[in-house]
Write a protein that binds this DNA or RNA. Structure first.
Length: 252
DNA sequence: AAAGTTTCCAACCGCCGAATC
DNA sequence: TGATTCGGCGGTTGGAAACTT
């Protein structure tokens, strides 16, 4: 049977949200929550698809969203996490409190991918291919410490292992090869984690680490209904980071 | 100053897995 | 047990803003 569309498109508004719509959505969610996205727009009196409402809330209106530039620490964290996880934006976002998967995805495609490409080409010389534009925004995020004063709290912390080093070396090889080269695998071999890896390891984790697993609880709204596989993924991300950290420390 | 180009980001689309019936 | 619904995810895109010529 043909799957029904996520929402009937007739008469539903699309495109950018207005301030009024934002207010309506926020007010409704604050009052009634968002137990049912599909029904929400009708209840709130919005001419929007439920999916659209959800996206707007998740990516923009949620109170714990951190607006503003990405700090260099955040960017480095994204790069490291992406090297380990690939395009698992939601998992990466879960490690960066206040950041959304959509935002991280955008940053990756607009800044970080290019940054990696140029650093790998010049092997260390970060040749600014693109001239600085939008000074208060993107450019500052790329060039070392951000000038953003208050929007990113000073005490901001990632859910990473305490000793996790966020290498900012320009020629850093962000692949897992660098992190795991001391584990016996060839250093020239790029370590790729694919889905089968995760499914296998996650399956193993149920038996081996089923109890006492520490789960990160850093993402208020999203963690309202955390799936166990997400918790497990968090566990493994943390484990890998700690492992790579231990490996690098042991070499000192 | 204007036209053309590039960059960025909010939003949409389609697919998938889990939950429910 | 299969069908259906729903929420969530990642890929992609359109338009606005910024920048260059």
């Amino acid at each position: 049977m043909v799957r029904a569309p996520c929402c009937e498109k007739m008469g539903l508004k699309r495109g950018p949200w207005t301030a009024d719509e934002d207010m309506t959505l926020v007010a409704h969610i604050e009052q009634h929550g968002h137990s049912n996205w599909r029904a929400l727009p009708k209840q709130a009196g919005l001419l929007r698809c439920g999916k659209s409402c959800r996206l707007r809330w998740i990516n923009y209106l949620r109170p714990d969203i951190k607006r503003g530039n990405f700090t260099s620490e955040e960017e480095d964290a994204i790069i490291q996490l992406h090297a380990m996880l690939g395009n698992r934006w939601s998992t990466i976002a879960a490690r960066l409190p206040g950041r959304t998967d959509n935002e991280i995805k955008n940053v990756w495609h607009t800044h970080l991918k290019k940054r990696l490409a140029s650093s790998s080409k010049t092997s260390g010389q970060a040749a600014p291919k693109h001239k600085a534009k939008k000074p208060p925004m993107a450019a500052s995020a790329l060039e070392g410490p951000t000038s953003e004063p208050a929007s990113s709290s000073p005490g901001q912390s990632f859910s990473m292992s305490p000793g996790q080093s966020l290498s900012t070396s320009s020629s850093a090889d962000y692949s897992m090869a660098s992190s795991l080269e001391n584990t016996g695998s060839s250093s020239s071999e790029e370590f790729q984690i694919d889905d089968s890896f995760w499914s296998e390891t996650l399956a193993m984790s149920v038996d081996s680490f089923g109890s006492g697993m520490e789960t990160s609880d850093t993402f208020g709204a999203d963690s309202a209904s955390p799936s166990s596989s997400n918790d497990e993924m968090d566990f493994w991300v943390t484990l890998f980071m700690q492992a790579s950290d231990i490996q690098s420390l042991s070499q000192i």
